[in-house]
Structure formats: C-alpha cells, structure tokens
Nucleic acid binder design. Structure first.
Length: 197
DNA sequence: CCCTGATTCGC
DNA sequence: GCGAATCAGG
C-alpha cells in the first residue's frame, strides 16, 4: 500500500477528527499505526490543535513575539475547525471501587474469581442499568472456559441453572468487565448519604 | 496488560 | 519517503 492522495486525505481527516493512529490504520488497511504516525509526522500535522491553544502548562509555549510574520500569500494555514478536544468525557463520578457488596448468597462460583455482585439490592444509576440490559443483548454469552483476559467476566443468570453465562464483550482496558459492566461494578459509593448522624 | 503518540534510523 | 523498532507515557 502506498500513500495515495485519497489515503492521505482520509488520514488527515481522521487525524483531525481525533481518531487514534491505530484506528486510522485499521480504516485505511494495509498499514500499521506506526506507518500512520510516521506519515502524520512527515505531513507535519502531529499537532491536532489547528491553532486552538489548549493552554498547556508550558512555561514558554510560544516564545513567538506578538507580531506574527504571516508568511506571504500562499502558505496559509486554514485552520478551519480548531476543535480542541471533542471529547465528551462522561465520567459522571470519580470511580470509587465498591467491588463486592454481595453477601446475599455464598454459592461457589467456578473459577473462584472475585465475581461481581448481581445488581439487585443496589441502587445503580438507571443509566448504567439501562446500559447493561442493553449490552447484555449483545453479550457473547460465553462459558467459563471461553473467557479470556480480554473478555468481560460479568456473570449473568444463576450459576445453578443452564441460564448462566458470561458477558464476554471486550473488556475495558485493565478492568475485568466491559464498559457497561464496569459501570455497575464500580459504584461511586454514594447511595448511603444518611449523613445525619 | 492494553493502549496512546513520538522518535529513530535502516531501507 | 517509508515504517518497524523503540521509546515514553497512561
């Protein structure tokens, strides 16, 4: 594969949109993320901020005097959509691990893993729950043996019945669960604000 | 561990 | 110019 105009264009577009190099590489096909990054650099667009200062904590970010020379006519930098960081960044609550508040039953679960609580007596954000029931439709419904380091290990159903399986969706980096299940597994640790002493 | 981008350097 | 290998974080 070579860097045809079209491919370069797509590269530019995606890079500008904030896509990661690996995503771009996947999209383009035939190249690795390294190739993409290398190209990005050669194109001189390593900085995604097209003029939108992100106010970095740099002491001297632009030692450039006020007067911007503005290179003659042609070499004009359009910088049309200076979208700084179109990052939704949900993160409603700072994670506060509340892993296993499930004293309900004491059944033995296969691998002896510290499995999560079944959302029952917990007050989990409706959104998170909705998200879960939503993704559980798409769940891979893996068996214990099918689980890998990269599959969501959230159990669904009763281990004592046939109707038991593991989510199996791609885990969220680090965590043992997929994004949706991480959402219900790690509670913000609230719901008990009876602070009234 | 997984991921990210940044750099280097032989090709 | 290209991109794998490597580096440096998160």
């Amino acid at each position: 594969m070579s860097w045809t105009d079209e491919r370069v264009e797509l590269l530019k577009k995606m890079w500008t949109e904030g896509q990661s190099a690996s995503q771009i590489a996947k999209e383009l096909g035939g190249v690795t993320r390294n190739a993409v990054i290398g190209k990005v650099h050669r194109l001189g667009l390593s900085n995604r901020a097209g003029g939108a200062p992100v106010a970095e904590a740099k002491p001297a970010p632009k030692p450039e005097p006020a007067a911007k020379p503005a290179p003659a006519a042609k070499a004009a930098r359009p910088a049309p959509a200076p979208q700084p960081e179109p990052e939704p960044a949900p993160a409603p609550e700072p994670v506060a691990a509340a892993p296993a508040p499930t004293p309900a039953r004491k059944q033995i679960i296969p691998a002896g893993q510290p499995l999560p609580p079944q959302p029952s007596t917990n007050e989990i954000s409706p959104e998170a729950l909705a998200k879960v029931s939503e993704i559980e439709k798409k769940a891979k419904r893996l068996t214990l043996m099918e689980l890998t380091e990269r599959t969501c290990k959230w159990p669904v159903g009763d281990p004592a019945t046939d109707d038991f399986w593991f989510c199996g969706l791609p885990v969220q980096q680090g965590k043992p669960y997929c994004e949706a299940h991480v959402g219900v597994a790690f509670q913000p640790m609230s719901s008990r604000r009876d602070r009234r002493r």
